[in-house]
C-alpha cells in the first residue's frame, strides 16, 4: 500500500543538489500470474514530480518496467542547506503520496 513513506536524501555539494529517492511501491506489471493462473492486475506508479521549494526540478513518467520499490537519482543546480525537496507520485489506481526532505 501507499502507507510507507518515501526515503528521500538530498545533499548539496558545490552548488549542485543531488537527490536520491527510494519509493515503496509494488510496481506490478500486469503480466504475472498468481498461483491459480489468474493475471495479477497491473499496479504501478505512472507519474512523479520532484520540487525544490515550489519549483519543479524533475518530472517523470514510469511504465511497468520500472523495478519494484523504485529508485531514482538526479541532480539539479542550486538548492541550499535546509531547503525543501518534495517528491510526489501518482499510480494507475489513482493513489498518490507526497513526502519531503530537507537538503543536507
Amino acid at each position: 500500500m501507499a502507507a510507507n513513506p518515501m526515503k528521500i536524501r538530498a545533499s548539496n555539494k558545490d552548488g549542485v543538489t543531488e537527490v536520491k529517492v527510494l519509493i515503496s511501491h509494488e510496481m506490478e506489471t500486469g503480466q504475472r500470474k498468481d498461483a491459480s493462473g489468474a493475471i495479477v492486475p497491473a499496479w504501478f506508479i505512472t507519474e512523479l514530480t520532484a520540487k525544490h521549494n515550489d519549483r519543479v526540478v524533475l518530472g517523470a513518467e514510469f511504465g511497468t518496467a520500472v523495478s519494484k520499490n523504485p529508485y531514482l537519482a538526479f541532480r539539479f543546480k542550486g538548492g541550499a542547506k535546509g531547503d525543501k525537496v518534495t517528491v510526489s507520485w501518482k499510480d494507475n489506481k489513482g493513489e498518490t503520496r507526497t513526502d519531503e526532505a530537507a537538503i543536507a
Binding site: 526540478v57 518530472g59 513518467e61 514510469f62 511504465g63 518496467a65 520500472v66 541532480r75
Partner: peptide, 24 residues
C-alpha cells in the same frame, strides 16, 4: 521488453542530464 518504454523524464532548466533508476 513487452513494452519498450520503461521511463521518461522531463528536465526543467537547471536540472542536469543525469538520471539513474532501476528497471526490470
Amino acid at each position: 521488453n513487452p513494452n519498450a518504454l520503461a521511463a521518461s523524464f522531463t528536465l526543467p532548466e537547471g536540472t542536469e542530464a543525469n538520471v539513474q533508476t532501476r528497471v526490470k
